[in-house]
Write a protein that binds this DNA or RNA. Structure first.
Lengths: 187, 187
DNA sequence: TTGATCTTTGGACGTTCGTCCTGAATAATT
DNA sequence: AATTATTCAGGACGAACGTCCAAAGATCAA
């Protein structure tokens, strides 16, 4: 198959970018992780940013697949499913940071094109959240709610990563559940 | 004076680490910013992590000086002063991320020693917050409140940096003020 | 002024990295 | 089976970086 090795490169880079970040991951590292020589990577990807682009797209695909997995559920259930997803990633976040937020943070200090591409991941999640909140709130409030929940997720990931303590994510997500219940029940 | 140039190196590195991150800032960059040759930097600092250590210490000194500037005020006023400080840094955060959180995030992917040192900055702020909340809450609740407020600050910085939009910080800090008022007024 | 110490210069050195290139191996097609 | 296209191996190359050093320059006490 033609794209099997290409996929292997992308998933290997996905792992390494999350674990060590984009800058500190060399193409040689990716080649090792993928079990091939770096010369072969050049066959599939001309440049390193090109790899990054595919990694971001792959990450987006995975996230959106998870978010849209169960289309029939209620808005609060859908939002809670994202909270559960974050909770289940708490240990990984404590070890390596949020794979979305930390990538966006690092790339934000590179050129503009990469920042925008990484930020797109956050925008997608936020847009999805806005859609869910729109089903139980008026549009302006829904936008604020989406932004607030995403803030809690990203902030707790930063703190958990800094402290190396997954509990911080779980505590803030518990806080988020409680806040969500208040939002659902209305004023 | 002997330490004038050394201080210049530290403050130059402080600026550049915040703007471009630690990894993407070369010693040559620091030398340029400080107006000297990189060979001279080696006279003051043997290695790059050594520069980082001084930068972190300098950042800590600046933050703690701000936090402890007005010792006579009430706990809510002190906490609000930190919120104002974050709000006034909203534009910088949108441009380069939170100088504390993004450094901790990046260094968390390096070796353990650097992660711990950068995390110390966050711990200091959190400890200060816990002390303030302890004056109006019981200790366990004070710890949770400190963690929650710091989560909001770090999370809004991540989102603001990703979007390049300082409004996000201001909105979440407005949210934090409201939350703080509820905490102050008790159950 | 002389000598000793501190500071600065400019570049050398080895390493790592991203990228590119040539030829070999493999797969596909006729 | 022969030919062509695709895929892979291995290394070459220059650029950038952290570190180190020897000598020149500046500062200051005796």
């Amino acid at each position: 198959m033609s794209s099997s090795n290409r996929d292997c490169i992308v998933t290997s880079a996905l792992r390494l970018f999350a674990r060590r970040g984009y800058t500190r991951t060399s193409i040689g590292d990716i080649a090792d992780e993928a079990g091939m020589l770096k010369g072969n990577i050049a066959y599939y990807f001309k440049t390193k940013p090109e790899i990054l682009a595919s990694v971001i797209d792959e990450r987006r695909r995975r996230i959106m697949a998870r978010l849209n997995a169960d289309a029939g559920e209620s808005a609060p259930d859908a939002i809670k499913r994202l909270i559960v997803l974050v909770e289940s990633s708490a240990d990984e976040m404590a070890r390596t940071g949020c794979p979305v937020g930390s990538l966006a943070g690092e790339l934000g200090k590179h050129d503009e094109a990469l920042r925008a591409r990484a930020a797109g991941l956050l925008v997608d999640i936020q847009t999805w959240l806005e859609q869910q909140f729109s089903r139980i709130q008026t549009p302006p409030a829904a936008q604020a709610s989406a932004e607030h929940l995403l803030t809690l997720m990203q902030g707790s990931a930063v703190l958990a990563h800094a402290h190396g303590d997954a509990h911080i994510v779980r505590k803030q997500m518990a806080h988020a559940r409680q806040w969500l219940d208040e939002v659902v029940q209305g004023p």
